[in-house]
Design a protein around this nucleic acid. Sequence first.
DNA 1: TGCAAAACTTTGCGCGCGTAAAGTTTAGAT
DNA 2: ATCTAAACTTTACGCGCGCAAAGTTTTGCA
Lengths: 343, 343
Amino acid sequence: MNGRKIRNMEEFAAASGVSRPTVSKFFNDPASVRPSTRRKIEAALEQYSYRPNIYATNLNRKLTKTIGIVVPVLADPFFAEIARKIERQVISAGFRPTLFSAHGNASLENDILENLLALKPAGVLLAPLGRASDQRVIDAFCREVPTVLFDSNLAQAGMAFVGSDNPQFARLMIDYLHRTGEPPCFFEMKSPSNPNANKRRSAYTAAMEERGLEANIVSIEGDGWDFEEIGRVGGLRALDADSFVTNTVLCSNDRLAIGLLSACFERGLRVGHHAQANIRVAGQDDHPFSRYTCPPLTTVAQDYDAISETATRLLFDAIDGGLSRGRPNDVLFEGRLIVRESA
Amino acid sequence: MNGRKIRNMEEFAAASGVSRPTVSKFFNDPASVRPSTRRKIEAALEQYSYRPNIYATNLNRKLTKTIGIVVPVLADPFFAEIARKIERQVISAGFRPTLFSAHGNASLENDILENLLALKPAGVLLAPLGRASDQRVIDAFCREVPTVLFDSNLAQAGMAFVGSDNPQFARLMIDYLHRTGEPPCFFEMKSPSNPNANKRRSAYTAAMEERGLEANIVSIEGDGWDFEEIGRVGGLRALDADSFVTNTVLCSNDRLAIGLLSACFERGLRVGHHAQANIRVAGQDDHPFSRYTCPPLTTVAQDYDAISETATRLLFDAIDGGLSRGRPNDVLFEGRLIVRESA
DNA sequence: TGCAAAACTTTGCGCGCGTAAAGTTTAGAT
DNA sequence: ATCTAAACTTTACGCGCGCAAAGTTTTGCA
């Protein structure tokens, strides 16, 4: 770290006693140069701390080392957590992750994709907004850039989809709830932002019918991604109107469940599976905070690790050309039942 | 969107009937060209959808249009929310925000800063990890790039600091709690990750002494950023050991309070300010989820809007050269008391 | 209508690196 | 010691755009 400032690769090559093309080769793959050469460069690297200029590097390359990660709402810890895991995988694969959040806004999602196009990323991991997404924009984007969708599927866009097996989630939870008490009603948003929600509704209905039980769905009003508030307000209304036919409620997701728990508390209802309880509430996702609700939330855990690992691996397969365009590459993961005190 | 593909600014200039330097000028500031010229370019823009190559653009520029945003933990909705607000400001100022999270890891924070250095950003908004941060790395970074710190201050690094007035937070909450019941004990981590925590402890002690009250601090074990779990485990231990001298607990932050609420529930304690309650719990921050705890959490709200707006504005001042290096530029915002049912 | 200022065009260099081609050195084997 | 492939050096071009200089056209105003 002594010596004069290094301005470019030319100067750095001179300082390390190696030609510039060899230095260039080194930075693209340190293992591609002779060990003795590599030592020379690495010695110089310790002295001068030089790094190739990103802009010059990418200017003349078709494929950059950037991987885009796009989530619909970063304020949702579920996505923050998934993004964290994906970032780690991307870094350890030697790529540069760049994180974007649409913050629940479709036009922002479009802007992000346009921006990403300009960044010429090697690939993109995209969790679209869902219903609100501009399908045409996403399709166009996926045609330009290798993209793997996760969390929320969009008809045939991208190279693959990685998500959860919603029917299995429903069967798992319904079996548990039915075994330990009354069969569940289903609590959801009438026009949900996320296509998963629609799948979960159908999964609930199908699983109930399979078991010869009557499906009871309570659909509440509300737009956007402020699920806790929507769940609380809708929950209050449903409780006051006595809309829940049984004493057990399966929520479309944990955040809605957190809102419903809040509503129950407001109405003085005791939630849980103990003798004095008035109502049982269960969620889906194993949201990072669901452990800390009062009572702690019974839920079905999404397999965060498997989803992030698989999505990343599929993307790298796609980048390497080892993935067909046809989208038979979808992977769904099963959920794990997390029994806590709320149900 | 018909016509052939546009490869570069040269071709686009030809297509729009304007010279390349003028097109360049247009993209740097559309208002800098004659209205008639602007219309020509914008007309061509609709036909051909061309965008200048980011890498070529930034290659020959000292100052890019990128603004870095670095937060310590994105899984904390507080930071996700602040990041969202900052992103919006940055975009509307015509810059490109790039979001990074250190995920609670100091070496990752260092990597991010090194990465950012290579991106040659116009400026950076940095909420450092705090105690865990590598102060030397951050100092070195701030010498290279205009940086405004927020949330957690670090001795004299950067051009400015924007945060909350912790003493005022303490006085506000202590006054309220003392007026409506017993004076509060203070619940905190023994060796907190964030320097705010230390300030909040001193602020609590000072405010209690001002009022002639005895300060009672319960410091719990725990490392990292998993505050809810730390608060829950530490809370259980404190409750079992009868460590809280009064029936009122002021937590160093909302996430710790959420953990303590969970512990109280586990021990069958009733939290709140009603007659049957055993304990009162209050937090600090107005965390996005504190509205939905059971009972809803009484807290002091950080002024998210003011913090993000001011931090962004100060950064742009610094970029424009309108900010002195000396750091008399710090801004602290007062908190707002949010009375809910927990205290 | 005339005139200066503003906006434009033309020309050309340079940013830092990828990469190809041709020639030279080195490594590892027979 | 001899040979060959691998690794290296030298040389040179191009990526797409910023930017400066010099010359030309347009604009706004008296």
